[in-house]
Design a protein around this nucleic acid. Structure first.
Lengths: 257, 257
DNA sequence: CGCGAATAGTCGGTATACCAAATGTTGACG
DNA sequence: CGTCAACATTTGGTATACCGACTATTCGCG
């Protein structure tokens, strides 16, 4: 088992915060918790049977990951889904996934390669909702595993985060279902290249894969809008960037996450 | 003023957590808090005159940013500096910064361009410690501003975080001082390209800039090791990756930050 | 009737008491 | 003398009470 949880690696650990965080995150990703919905600490605490402290902690983590928004002294809301966020996320993918794939080709371990193979060759039953959901998971795992195989932990973390955020769009209804088989094919050629240890080919395949994904989601969005089934709100990507100035020495400092 | 703080945008806000977080972060970045040093919540609370709650919160955020490590039920430590971390960070730079520069060339606002100009042309007095420290700040601000100008917030956050982490190495003693003037020159050509709105040139300049930085730090590390002045510990990049499995459905899930 | 100031209500921010996990220590027993 | 179990200690994890920030509402005055 390549992918596992540090958490279980020792023992059970009867802590509330960690499982809570995971549950809430999963519910956000799967859109059980509606994007944009606002809530309070107490409320969430009731929903998940937890007191404010762990709830608070989970919310902070989730905010840091871009899944929750905090308005100081006022409350929380599930991060809304916006077209600009979707765009940013895909742009990020197109920046790092090719490199991640290239590094993976050079650095992946044998077990990782095997696992990739397995994840890529998922047989997908068209028009089967649960099969599609399973595919979303596989897709996430595959991309994460490739990133992990890049042997660059920061990179791996970023890739995971981007995919976590992207998945919300898919769960909400931006369905790639019609493209499913195509996606599987692309995954297979990508993994093929990695297994051949051909870094440049892997880079090309990944770049191509993302490029096509962007294209496809473009047309999905177009038709969604044309048919008036606006899948998500169009928000004027709120405030300006998250940078800072100190006093005299203007200090840039992103939220640095 | 391009870079500002949402925080001051409304009013003073007498909250403890936020300023505390900033102070601790600054102290970690500037290595006032020694890398590797372990501490407890209570201890840090005494040092910064704060109670456990805000301390805890700050530490969690800092852990998420890779500046602090948490050992459940045992305590905290300032994240150690390792060669592999340094390597990972530079690799991240080489992935993200060229794209950031290219986007900045296409999307930066006029005020941003002006600010970049100002940051790049910093006049640097060789052999002046305080001038060097100021330069480190400018360097950080410039890179962050370019990322900000990419108009992709996730990208901007990632780049900021990378630089925050990198700065610790410089503050610890990995001194680029002898290369100072060279760096300034490189910054100027990079900003030049961005101001000309030449995306591809900006991409090349950024890539070149990072490549050279990698080269330079390579030789710095070499000599540091040769002279036995090991600047930082060589740690066997601890445990294996941060991935997860659920129960039956093996679910990859990075710390997703 | 309109508007602004007082006010009540909501919600997060903070402090703190208490609980449980992990570890180190010590002493009884083989 | 070694081993291991009971225990003391340290440190986070969790619950909760209290406080201050922010909002919305309402009431009174012009």
């Amino acid at each position: 088992m390549l992918v596992y949880d540090w958490y279980f690696s020792v023992k059970a650990m009867a802590t509330i915060g960690e499982p809570l965080y995971r549950r809430v995150r999963q519910d956000i990703v799967e859109c059980e918790l509606t994007p944009g919905k606002s809530f309070s600490e107490a409320e969430l605490g009731r929903m998940y049977n937890a007191s404010r402290t762990p709830v608070r902690e989970a919310c902070r983590r989730l905010e840091h990951e871009g899944l929750v928004r905090i308005i100081p002294f006022r409350g929380y809301s599930i991060a809304p889904l916006s077209i600009s966020e979707f765009h940013d996320l895909q742009e990020m993918q197109s920046i790092f996934e090719p490199s991640a794939a290239a590094f993976a080709a050079e650095r992946a371990s044998q077990p990782e390669l095997d696992e990739m193979q397995e994840l890529a060759t998922y047989e997908y039953r068209v028009n089967d909702k649960s099969s599609y959901r399973a595919f979303l998971q596989k897709n996430y795992q595959l991309h994460s595993l490739i990133a992990q195989a890049s042997r660059n932990r920061r990179l791996s973390e970023v890739v995971s985060n981007i995919h976590v955020r992207l998945m919300r769009f898919f769960y909400l209804g931006l369905s790639f279902e019609p493209y499913g088989p195509t996606l599987v094919t692309e995954h297979i050629s990508l993994v093929e290249a990695i297994r051949k240890r051909d870094a440049e080919e892997a880079r090309r395949m990944a770049a191509e894969h993302i490029r096509k994904a962007v294209e496809r989601s473009g047309s999905l969005l177009m038709s969604a809008i044309r048919f008036g089934e606006t899948v998500f709100e169009v928000l004027p990507e709120d405030e300006i960037s998250p940078l800072v100035s100190g006093t005299s020495t203007r200090r840039v400092q992103g939220s640095a996450s």
